[in-house]
Structures are given as structure tokens and as C-alpha cells.
């Protein structure tokens, strides 16, 4: 029996493996190298994007000054004024305006698709929503320009229909498909046993949706709204086409309605419209990169928030 241990140790040594087993081990190593490299490559590329953005953006903070840049009230490159506050406010108003319209309608649509619509109709609706999510933003901009802008001009009797409101509604329609399809997934993922439990207590379908299904899908719905917001805040083309592109600040709180019904300019639209006419290395050029960096920071923060909420929701579900 003394010889048995030696044969056993031989049995698990690499060089004694069959050809097939050796190939399988080698494949395992190759696969893990490929996956690691692609992962690291993605991170490196992202890092370099950030570095190049920062390299051209940072001179702004010495030439203009970080405070003057961030809270300067006037964006007039021809007079060397590079305050992005009007652009920030423009972006925020258009984005939040879009969310105010898109979130309630989007959630209502998601509830309809997930809980109310007849099953045969449901799959058709889901396909349509996904198709809508794939429409290029220029098309939305075109529709906003041709249909929405004249409508806004007529209804509010304005000199121009190219306003923050027009931009917000156009963006609302753009972000709605994202909000609908992600929240619909979240609502569908709520276990049927939850609604059964509620119905068995004598709750109506609406009470069940309102008090059990939607709260259970909360984290997914919040993530859907943040994704929709990400789409809205980063959007350029549609906004460029329908907001009128005037960097104006609201005149105090009473000026808000007028501000909303007048032309605005967003950060993305500024980069897109100005980039062609700047000299490389000029302050204007640097300032546009600094706007890009600001957008980067904002969307990073939004994504982090989405991630945190999702993760907390996930833990709550365990």
C-alpha cells in the first residue's frame, strides 16, 4: 500500500494530463488573458479620453478662472466672456422640463404595458417602444422644429416657437422610450406572488399596482428615470434645432415663465455650434473643452447616483 500515494500524486500533475485536458487548460488561460486585456483596454481608452479632454480644458481655469467660468453670467466669446451659468441653467431647465413631462407619462405607459394591456398586444407595444428608442435624435429635432415649435408659438402667442419649452418637450419624447422600456422591465420583474398576496387580501388591481408593484420596482424605475435624464442632458442635435440658441439667464424668480417660453442655449448645443469657428488653442477653444469636462462630470455623477440606487435596491431585495 506504500506505493499508492506516489501514483496518486502523479495523477494530478500537469504533464501527465491527456492532450485533450492540456488543450482545455491552455484555452482557459488564453480566454482569461483575452477578457482581462479587453477590460483593461476599455478602461485605458476611457482614461485617455478624459486626459485629452482635461488637457485642453484646464488652460481655461488659468485664463478665465474657475469661478468666473462656472458662475459667470454671460457667455460672449467675442467679448472674451466665458461664463457658462446661462448654459448650465439652460441645460438644467431643458433637462428637468423634459423629465417633468417624461417621467409620469413614461411610468404610466410602463404600468399599462406590464400590468394592464392584453398579453397579445403587450409584445407589439414593447417592440414599438424599442423601435422608438432607436430613432436618431435629428429626427426628433426635425419633428420638434416642424410641428412642436409652430404649435408652441401659436398657443403662447410668442415671437418664436424655438424655446426652452419646445426643447424640453422634444427631449421628453426622446427619453420616454428609455424610461418606458427600463421601468417596464423592472415592473415585470416584480414577483407575481407579491400581487397575489395583495389581491388575496381584497385589494383592487389599482391598489395592488399603486401600493405593492410600483414600490417593489422602485429602484428599477428610478434607474430608468436617471438613464432617461442621461439621454436628455447629453442630447445635442435635437436641442440645437429647437431651442433657439440664445444664452440668456432667467430674470429672477418672476422671470422664470418668460425664460421657459424664450430661446435658451444648452452646454451641448454651445459646443456643437461654436467648435467650427474657434481657433485651436484660443481661450474660446479651451472653454469649449471645459464645458465638455463639466458635462462629463455631471453625467458621471448621474450614473454614479443611478448605480448607488440600483445597488441599494438590490441589497434591499435579498
Amino acid at each position: 500500500m506504500a506505493s499508492t500515494p506516489t501514483t496518486n500524486t502523479q495523477g494530478i500533475v500537469f504533464k501527465n494530463l491527456s492532450r485533450y485536458e492540456k488543450r482545455s487548460r491552455v484555452k482557459d488561460i488564453v480566454a482569461s488573458i483575452v477578457v482581462h486585456t479587453s477590460g483593461i483596454a476599455a478602461i485605458v481608452v476611457l482614461f485617455f479620453i478624459f486626459v485629452f479632454l482635461a488637457k485642453d480644458a484646464l488652460p481655461t481655469f488659468t485664463k478665465v478662472g474657475i469661478l468666473k467660468f462656472l458662475i459667470g453670467t454671460s457667455w460672449q466669446p467675442e467679448f472674451e466672456k466665458f461664463g457658462i451659468l446661462p448654459l448650465l441653467v439652460g441645460s438644467l431647465f431643458v433637462t428637468f422640463g423634459a423629465l417633468v413631462v417624461a417621467v409620469p407619462i413614461g411610468i404610466a405607459c410602463a404600468v399599462y404595458i406590464a400590468e394592464v394591456s392584453p398579453p397579445s398586444f403587450r409584445s407589439l407595444l414593447k417592440v414599438i417602444v424599442e423601435l422608438l428608442a432607436g430613432i436618431p435624435s435629428v429626427v426628433f429635432g426635425f419633428i420638434g422644429l416642424m410641428i412642436l415649435a409652430p404649435l408652441v408659438q401659436k398657443v403662447f402667442e410668442l415671437p418664436t416657437g424655438l424655446t426652452a419649452l419646445t426643447g424640453a418637450v422634444t427631449l421628453a419624447f426622446m427619453s420616454m422610450p428609455t424610461i418606458i422600456s427600463v421601468s417596464e422591465d423592472a415592473i415585470t420583474a416584480v414577483p407575481k406572488s407579491y400581487s397575489d398576496g395583495s389581491l388575496a387580501l381584497g385589494a383592487t388591481k389599482w391598489e395592488t399596482i399603486r401600493h405593492v408593484v410600483i414600490p417593489s420596482a422602485k429602484s428599477g424605475i428610478v434607474a430608468a428615470c436617471l438613464l432617461g435624464m442621461g439621454r436628455a442632458i447629453g442630447e445635442t442635435m435635437a436641442v440645437l434645432m429647437v431651442t433657439g440658441n440664445a444664452s440668456i439667464l432667467p430674470k429672477g424668480l418672476v422671470g422664470l415663465p418668460n425664460f421657459f417660453l424664450g430661446p435658451v442655449r444648452t452646454m451641448t448645443a454651445t459646443i456643437a455650434s461654436d467648435m467650427g469657428e474657434t481657433v485651436q488653442g484660443s481661450t474660446h477653444y479651451n472653454a469649449l473643452f471645459a464645458i465638455g469636462l463639466t458635462l462629463f462630470a455631471i453625467s458621471f455623477a448621474v450614473n454614479m447616483a443611478a448605480d448607488l440606487i440600483l445597488r441599494r435596491g438590490g441589497l434591499g431585495k435579498e
Binding site: Y194, G197, S216
Partner: peptide, 15 residues
């Protein structure tokens, strides 16, 4: 359903 309560196979408390 208020008068006839039900308990299911898998415990299904709400979250």
C-alpha cells in the same frame, strides 16, 4: 377576499 384569507406555498411578504 376580505372574508376569505389566503396563505401561499412560498412565504410572500411584501418588501
Amino acid at each position: 377576499r376580505k372574508r376569505v384569507g389566503m396563505v401561499f406555498q412560498q412565504p410572500n411578504p411584501f418588501p
